[in-house]
Design a protein around this nucleic acid. Structure first.
Lengths: 128, 128
DNA sequence: TAGAATCTACGAATCTTTTCGTAATTTGGC
DNA sequence: GCCAAATTACGAAAAGATTCGTAGATTCTA
């Protein structure tokens, strides 16, 4: 079991990971196109960032083709958990529950969403 | 009503805010002492950070005494909300509920905590 | 096959964050 | 009053994150 204490993507890196999670393995051009809708970044800027991410192990690179194909090294859910737990530690004294309560309180939920959460709580309780 | 879209403390700044929220208005020495248990930071490093935070408006400074007294400019709950919403936007497509579900799933909750959450959900539903 | 387009590599500039040393000032103890 | 201790101000170095230009290689197209 790896600790993953070193999974700390920067904001730009998160933006890139988001694209990779959504699109699956992608080239620099793919990512650049996807990001260009929201961000104003040069092509080589994205390239450089992705090269650095490969060095850091945030992404894996397949360079069999001329246009290298990058994929997120971590599953989205796992990465999300790391980031949630990081925030819990930084600003909620380590309590993920407090974090959850703030999240639920600050954004209106639809009745379906509320139901979904209750269902999840039931499961949690059952698993106990 | 201020938008607060610019409330983006860095990690060190969050560590300092945490102390100010916990202790209330504090001097640089207070904060440095509190942080020294977990971090290895020089006194003037903390001082400089807090001066910068005052410039940015993250803290307010009372300089009537020789040892200036700093206080967090935002209530803890408000700041927590900003950071939660920021994370939701960055990695959960803006959905605070998804964030909450990840938080609840990844850390075991006590029965009391589960009850507390259900109570909160009831309130949310009632308020609708 | 020549030229245009596309790609990677990489150095370097810039900007932000974090760090701390030094100087100057004030306070407190003796 | 004097000296040691504590404080602020501030410059600047170090480290980290972001940006992009240019060079060189490969591929595509006419």
């Amino acid at each position: 079991m790896q600790s993953m204490a070193d999974f700390k993507p920067t904001n730009s890196e998160i933006a890139i990971l988001r694209v990779l999670w959504q699109r699956g393995p992608s080239t620099v051009r793919d990512v650049h196109s996807a990001l260009s809708h929201e961000r104003d970044m040069g092509y080589t800027t994205v390239l450089k960032l992705m090269q650095i991410m490969a060095e850091k192990g945030l992404v894996v690179r397949d360079d069999r083709e001329r246009a290298h194909v990058y994929a997120a090294a971590q599953a989205q859910a796992k990465a999300q958990d790391s980031l949630v737990s990081d925030l819990a530690n930084k600003v909620f004294g380590g309590s993920a529950m407090k974090l959850a309560m703030h999240a639920l309180n600050q954004q209106p939920c639809s009745p379906e969403e509320l139901k979904e959460i209750r269902r999840m709580l039931d499961e949690l309780e059952a698993k106990k």
